[in-house]
Design a protein around this nucleic acid. Sequence first.
DNA 1: GCCGTTTTCGGCCCGACTGTTTTCAGTCG
Length: 574
Amino acid sequence: MAKTLPRNAEIADQLDLLADISEILGEDSFRVIAYRRAATRIRETPGPVAELALSGHAKDLPGIGKTIEQKVVEIVNDGEMHALAKRRQSVPAGVVDFLRLPGIGPKTAARIWTELGVTTLDGLQEAAASGRLRDLSGLGARSEEKVLKALEAGAGRKAPAEDRGLLGAALPAVKAVVEELRAHPAAIAVSEAGSVRRRRETVRDLDFIATSADPPALIASFCEAPWVAEVVARGDTKATVLGHQGLRFDLRVVEPECFGNVLQHFTGSKGHNVALREEAQRRGLSISEYGVTTVGTGEVVTHADEDALYEYLGYQPIPPELREDSGELEAARERRIPPLVEPGDLRGEMHAHSTWSTDAKATIEEMVLTAKARGLSYLCLTDHSHYLRDGRLEAQWREIDDVNARSGRGFKVLRGIEVNIRADGSLDVDDDVLAELDWVIASLHTAFDRSPTERILGAMDSPHVDCIGHLSGRRILKRPGAEVDVERVVEHAVATGTALEINSQPDRLDMRDTHARLAGEAGVLIPVVTDAHSTAALSYAELGIGLARRAWLTKEQILNTRTWAQVAKLRKRA
DNA sequence: GCCGTTTTCGGCCCGACTGTTTTCAGTCG
């Protein structure tokens, strides 16, 4: 039997651990950076990197060379990179955990271990409590205090992803704050920044950049807003506050002439900025949040406008969602950044539920009214198949007909369904019933670990299945989702003419960005859907559009930017 | 360890903050 290949996440974790250990051992810092870069690259690669490494193509990925490719092959063969296996012998496992504590980096971690002989978090806690930490030069009572406080809060013992929240939870708050700041008389320009602006699926700190005629007044209004639970830091140009749900908001007020530079800097990503600066450096330019310096002359140029900054550097303006160091700089140099799909491009909803699904909250009519108000012209009602047995499907159709009769021209409800792909791969609705429907979504809802890829491929073979719902079944921050071979699925979607949805539920966002990009490049038709179980949830479309933009998708690649008549012609049964 | 519009060798982003120290190394984003 074939060996199961290590997942990208596992390879990346090993590289990150190797980087941590190498850093503690004081090895060449540029090699450490190379390990970390490779780890990030591998984590963001849509297909299995192990497979690429075996065929000698992993080194085609930027940041991966012969040596790291070989290390990936070692994982396949022996379960662990040899360099990692060797170094683990020399550094106690607990010392690596020190790095997760604030203020403790590789140098300090190494000295705590070698000079104090402390090798566990418990040992560190004791050393800090008994005042032994201050024996190290450069560390004092303040450092001990900080370490103790962090350890009490559980730092170092949990995974780093756990302090992130869902974009869907943060985005409404971010928009409200931007609007509030803009309405202030002292405000000139206000923008969100950071990972929210890039529409990353999870976020931590929420960043805002503003220009103002009276910075202290704007800062004051920000800190004294009713939604602020605690002011963490407050200066004349910068403040950090906590909201009541624990979200952290960061506002920087800057001079109007460098608004573009600061916004670009604080939008990130870090990888994008590093790559941008490296390219600039080769041309004798130095970029910072304060402007672009020509190294030879010392001349500094600032930009009030972010697009103008990119143009000055020789790039087509790059939408925030693409700034992940995943090919956007090269594309922008060659002016190949595509016009990305926008929220207003959507014409219909293709995955939504009504009270016919007992887990949903709104009637068909209520869903229709909200969809209409959002500017849509059709809605595929795709209630769960298991709630539509024993004549209930026909009854649902009668209600659909009634609603259609009442809502008149300009809007249409289509007969759809979301069928389950059972553990054995079969669909839980008969073909003769599916044949009568306008839109059929097949989804995994159970047994995620039982041959998910084969079950999905099988569902796509059905002439009645128009679309696969939430491909992996993941719940962000809750469960990882099925191990689906996305490359095979995408290939088969093209071959069978099956669509693959982008599900906009805040904790699904499934397919994820890198997979959606792969599907789009292959020519799969991709509906952006909300899977709404309430009228309010129809607004999640914005999250799905953010995901689609992160996947470099244009209006043409998104199925429901078309009218229903146009969509119907693209169905596999058409 | 990776990489190339000066380079297959010799580079590798930038600035602020922190805690400690007295000029800075380490950490952070």
